[in-house]
Write a protein that binds this DNA or RNA. Structure first.
Length: 575
DNA sequence: ATGCATCGCGCG
DNA sequence: AAAGCGCGCGATGCAT
């Protein structure tokens, strides 16, 4: 049973739609209207029948339910599902995908419209998108909720899934994406436990005492003095790349940029203090005292997680750089007294995904234990380090350097897996879409991309036109090559996390934040905050759910998805 | 003052 | 000029 929530002037309209409904979107549905203030209690009451809640946007409905202590088991997030169905090759013939852009095509799917500016922009969006974007640059999200009837949209989505090339897979993807939306709201509600005192202690030991606003921390000031001596210049501003480059030049160091990896290659007494300064400057500005004040409230870090935020289906986040927490400060993530953190990550996830996606049995075999050791044992490469670099090259499309050099050997050892990514790359170079295992498809390149390709074959095309077009085509090919792997890994991770969520809920009674619950997710890694006595059970759940996710996506295919899981008091103790 | 692009670097 | 994938954010510096 589905219950659709619609915001109406009188409050909330609840529309019940039975599962058995065979097509026919015109069949009458049972409806009731309640005041908004009564919503949480009504949802809690109806939740006993385990309906699937259908709403336009989880982030608009669910936080108020959670705040009222109401957790729901499952939902359909129409906005996220619409985005998938609209782009998927599996549902390309559906009415939903073929109709004109509407209110469900939210601003979220074209967040980088402003980047559409000049001819060498790679990641512009498809024709129909960019047209509408330029035609109506105002915020479309604002009128979305008013114009769109969720019941109509839900019926349209069900029809699209029913008529899909792979209804089982696309249905699974929609369920996983929606579960992810629930988890994103729940993670924000629960919050990542953050110990301000530990964080301040780390800052103080690395940077020195907290300085007045606008003043350099003592440790950075001392390093700057060393740099002045090494350069024999009084006036050095390491915070401006331009000025720093000029100062280095005056001292005879002719770098092309001030990137750390380039500076590391240079032998000069200024380099060591400079690199250390840059490291500390980064810490101070990105995760220093002001970060702590802005983002940690009542011992919790609560960023906004953005399901489907990346083109590949990975999550994004906004606020506090949630997905970039430097390892330097992870020790400040501390479990509450009597609680533990279970930190779990999927080992070598992306290469395993590639093995499963391509059904490459030899690569699956290599992944019985440590995948990279297995690749060494297969004879393809000599060392574990080489195996890692070679696999990265295969998934990212490296053509040069050590990675590119190892590719032929890898191709000989695992022809089926490599053929899969090569084929995705070729499709991208032709400007075609590619799809993940469950049916999330890549966007097609924008008009600027096509113009450049066209120009390379038109009359009077110069050699530079051709070279540019080829370079651009290959760049898009690297994107689509990686898309199928990264995107399928994201689907696996969603399934994993959804399984973990379901099982955690069964472990103990009580309010959401009194039970073991997910507090962090980072592409292939999760953190569960749990009462200490349940930690071992959580570890078991995390492992079993990983195996379950593998079966869900790939059936009986013999690809392992091992998880490294540790029970710790703080995040710094993991890895 | 405010907006925007660029650099650089954190994460997977 | 060419480029191994996907992100978010802060500082700087130029443009409006």
């Amino acid at each position: 049973m589905h219950i659709v929530l619609t915001a109406v002037p009188a409050g909330v309209l609840l529309t019940t739609i039975p599962d058995a409904s065979s097509g026919g979107g015109s069949a009458p549905h049972a409806t009731t209207t309640i005041p908004r203030a009564a919503l949480a209690a009504e949802v809690a009451r109806l939740e006993r029948d385990r309906p699937r809640w259908v709403w336009g946007d989880t982030s608009a409905w669910y936080p108020e339910l959670l705040a009222a202590g109401v957790r729901v088991e499952r939902c359909v997030d129409l906005r996220l599902c619409h985005t998938i169905l609209r782009g998927s090759q599996f549902t390309a013939d559906s009415v939903l995908a073929r109709s004109a852009r509407g209110p469900w095509d939210s601003a979220l799917v074209e967040p980088r419209e402003s980047r559409v500016r000049d001819e060498d922009t790679l990641f512009t969006f498809g024709d129909e998108l960019s047209e509408d974007v330029t035609a109506e640059p105002s915020n479309e999200r604002a009128n979305t909720s008013q114009n769109a009837d969720p019941v109509t949209e839900f019926v349209s989505q069900r029809a699209a899934v029913a008529g899909a090339a792979e209804p089982g897979r696309i249905g699974l993807l929609l369920a996983a994406e929606s579960a992810g939306a629930l988890i994103a709201s729940e993670m924000k509600c629960g919050g990542l436990p953050w110990h301000a005192g530990v964080h301040e202690g780390l800052l103080e030991s690395l940077l020195g005492p907290r300085p007045a606003p606008g003043v350099r921390p003592a440790r950075m000031e001392a390093l700057l003095e060393q740099m002045r001596l090494a350069l024999d210049q009084r006036d050095v501003n390491p915070d401006s790349p331009n000025e720093l480059l000029r100062a280095l030049g005056r001292a005879g160091i002719h770098a092309t940029s001030t990137r750390s990896w380039e500076l590391k290659e240079i032998t000069h007494p200024v380099i060591a203090p400079l690199l250390e300064y840059k490291k500390l400057a980064r810490l101070a500005s990105a995760n220093g005292w002001s970060w702590l004040e802005s983002w940690v409230v009542d011992g919790r870090f609560r960023p906004d997680y953005v399901p489907g935020g990346a083109a590949t289906g990975r999550w994004g986040a906004s606020g506090g750089g949630a997905l970039q927490l430097p390892k330097q400060i992870r020790a400040a993530v501390v479990a509450d007294p009597g609680w533990k953190l279970v930190v779990a990550d999927a080992a070598q996830l992306e290469p395993r995904i590639l093995a499963a996606l391509s059904a490459d049995r030899r690569m699956a075999e290599a992944g019985r234990g440590d995948l990279y050791e297995g690749i060494v044992a297969s004879g393809a490469v000599a060392t574990r380090a080489e195996a890692k670099i070679a696999m990265l090259g295969a998934m990212y499309g490296a053509t040069t350097g050590e990675s590119g050099r190892l590719m032929p050997a890898l191709t000989r050892a695992f022809p089926q897996a490599i053929a899969m990514v090569e084929s995705a790359a070729r499709a991208g170079e032709r400007g075609e879409k590619v799809s993940t295992r469950l049916g999330r498809s890549s966007q097609v390149p924008g008009q600027a991309w096509r113009d450049i390709q066209g120009a390379a074959y038109g009359e009077g095309a110069t050699e530079s036109d051709t070279r540019r077009a080829r370079g651009q085509a290959r760049a898009w090919g690297r994107f689509t090559r990686n898309f199928i792997v990264q995107g399928t890994a994201a689907e696996w991770a969603l399934s994993w996390m959804a399984g973990v969520r379901n099982e955690l809920w069964k472990l103990s009674p009580g309010a959401f934040t009194e039970r073991p619950h997910l507090v962090f997710f980072l592409h292939d890694e999760i953190i569960v905050h749990t009462p200490a006595h349940l930690a071992d059970s959580v570890v078991k759940i995390v492992r079993e759910s990983a195996a379950g996710a593998g079966r869900l996506l790939f059936g009986a295919l013999p690809v392992d998805f091992p998880v490294t899981a540790v029970v710790v008091d703080n995040y710094g103790q993991a890895k």
